[in-house]
């Protein structure tokens, strides 16, 4: 019977440190830096970045950047990313959030506590020696339940 081990050492560590870190006024990410952002419907984003040597580029109204990452084995990788919005917390009530998309649309959202925490699994795309890793545990998500509104 096929089976796959789950290495949950990182999630276990996250559970341990979660209590040691003082709560931020903006409840956004876990101590390991992850969070969930949920938008009703589909978010259409460019599938490729313009070919350029520069770290940033603007094309068709989209801002493209390059992201440098270093993994656990200290292997450096550079990937493309596109900016799709600006997330702004209400200063009086940090549970209220606005996501501005481009220059014409905004989404009103809230920070919601999940009924059951969610484990984030990092599943290898191909079968191999690598275990599935449970990398973090998330308790809250930022959710946008309504249709986009125009920016006046």
């Amino acid at each position: 019977m096929p089976s796959a081990n789950i290495d949950y050492s990182e999630a276990s560590r996250a559970l341990g440190v979660a209590n040691d870190i003082p709560a931020s006024p903006y409840v956004l990410s876990t101590p390991f830096g992850l969070s969930i952002l949920e938008i009703q419907g589909q978010l259409v984003l460019p599938s490729s970045a313009p070919e350029t040597e520069s770290d940033t580029a603007v094309e068709g109204g989209n801002t493209f950047v390059k992201v440098e990452s270093v993994d656990q084995k200290l292997v450096r990788a550079v990937r493309d990313a596109v900016q799709f919005g600006k997330l702004s917390f209400d200063e009086k009530d940090p549970s209220k959030v606005v996501l501005f998309i481009g220059t014409s649309q905004r989404l009103n959202g809230v920070v919601e506590t999940l009924r059951e925490p969610l484990a984030v699994l990092k599943v290898p795309s191909q079968d191999g020696d690598t275990d599935i890793r449970m990398v973090d545990i998330i308790y809250k998500k930022i959710i946008f339940k309504h249709r986009p509104l125009p920016i006046m």
Binding site: V67, S88, F89, S125
Partner: peptide
């Protein structure tokens, strides 16, 4: 407090969340 939000293009080939 505000954040710029980006999305990685193409995702990662070696794993999925």
């Amino acid at each position: 407090m505000s954040f710029s939000v980006y999305s990685q293009i193409g995702g990662s080939d070696d794993h999925k969340y």
